[in-house]
């Protein structure tokens, strides 16, 4: 009965979409990288970098969209490091990605501490406000759930469509998918494997950083240490769950968001009976389950993790 009430409430679905937003950015970003054949474990650190740089830019007076741009550029920069190490140099994608995560995280934390050496409580910015759309926002149910979200949530939903369109309906997308499946075919066509993969990793990383930016510029209004808290790793699991399809990625992120929103509400209902940590751990446990279920049937890009060198077959 209680669960039914929760599931029917507008606030629950609005919260689900809100929680899903950073994951949508992250899953799409990871998906683009992996479609081109490069696993990007830099994602966790790129989230941190996006969250910190976007927030810092706004705090320094760049304006909200200026902050979004700065976050995307920061993400692209760390993506470029990963791309250089893994594409032309062909180094271990696992280790390079973890290195980028450690590097991006420590650069962000160090910069934050250096820019703000002596603050006790994190300074706040004026974050993105929920959009107020004439007529649409007043619709019953759909109004609050869909049409009172912030612009970044809309951007995330738009990106799902855009990534799907680019990957499936444009020559560029077909080339990206081909370079992740069979790089030799791309080379035979006279296209550059290096350029395609590097471009995909940089673009994907810029998208990941927007997920981080959403945290400091929409979900919250300040930057905290440890605020990303594994969201990046969850995205890596969700990509496999989504079998590298943008539509299923959206579904996976929404499911995850709904589950997370549900656990917060259940916690207030049955909090006395079950330790709160059960609810806190549930999203991570769920991700592992999703991975175990999806792993065997997952449609891996065939050249994922395999470096390619020119003139070497």
């Amino acid at each position: 009965m209680d669960i039914l009430q929760i599931l029917l409430s507008e606030s629950f679905w609005a919260a689900s979409l809100r929680i899903a937003t950073p994951l949508i950015f992250g899953v799409l970003g990871a998906l683009i990288c992996e479609k081109s054949g490069v696993l990007n474990l830099g994602i966790e650190g790129i989230f941190v970098a996006g969250a910190m740089t976007g927030w810092l830019a706004v705090w320094l007076g760049a304006g909200l969209w200026g902050g979004v741009l700065v976050a995307a550029l920061a993400g692209g920069f760390f993506g470029l490091i990963h791309a250089v190490l893994t594409v032309p140099l062909g180094l271990s994608q696992h280790v390079s990605g973890l290195g980028v995560t450690l590097f991006a995280t420590s650069v962000s934390y160090f910069s934050y501490r250096t820019a703000l050496p002596t603050v006790t409580s994190p300074p706040r910015i004026e974050p993105f406000r929920p959009l107020d759309m004439p007529f649409l926002s007043d619709l019953p149910f759909f109004g609050p759930v869909l049409f009172q979200q912030t612009a970044l949530t809309w951007l995330a939903l738009f990106m799902v469509g855009l990534v799907w369109y680019v990957l499936n309906r444009t020559a560029l997308g077909i080339a990206i998918k081909a370079v992740g499946d069979n790089p030799n075919s791309i080379d035979a066509q006279g296209l550059s494997v290096y350029a395609l993969r590097t471009g995909a990793v940089v673009a994907g990383s810029a998208l990941m950083a927007l997920g981080g930016a959403f945290l400091t510029m929409s979900a919250f209004d300040a930057f905290f240490f440890g605020m990303v808290n594994g969201r990046g790793w969850v995205c890596i699991a969700l990509v496999i769950f989504a079998s590298w399809r943008p539509g299923k990625a959206l579904l996976g992120a929404l499911l995850f968001g709904a589950f997370d929103a549900l656990q917060v509400r259940l916690q207030t209902e049955v909090g006395a009976l079950v330790p709160s940590q059960v609810f806190l751990a549930a999203p991570y446990v769920l991700s592992i389950f999703a991975l175990v279920i999806a792993a065997r049937s997952a449609d891996y890009p065939r050249a994922l993790l395999t470096p390619w060198f020119k003139g070497q077959r």
């Binding site: 969850v234 890596i236 940590q277 751990a281 991570y284 446990v285 592992i288």
Partner: peptide, 27 residues
Amino acid sequence: LLKTKFGADEVVTTLLLNFIILIFLQY
């Protein structure tokens, strides 16, 4: 075991387990 039996990537599972174990520790 999840890797050898189900093909679940150990990178992701070990990373996520870190968070689960830390929450268990707090409990």
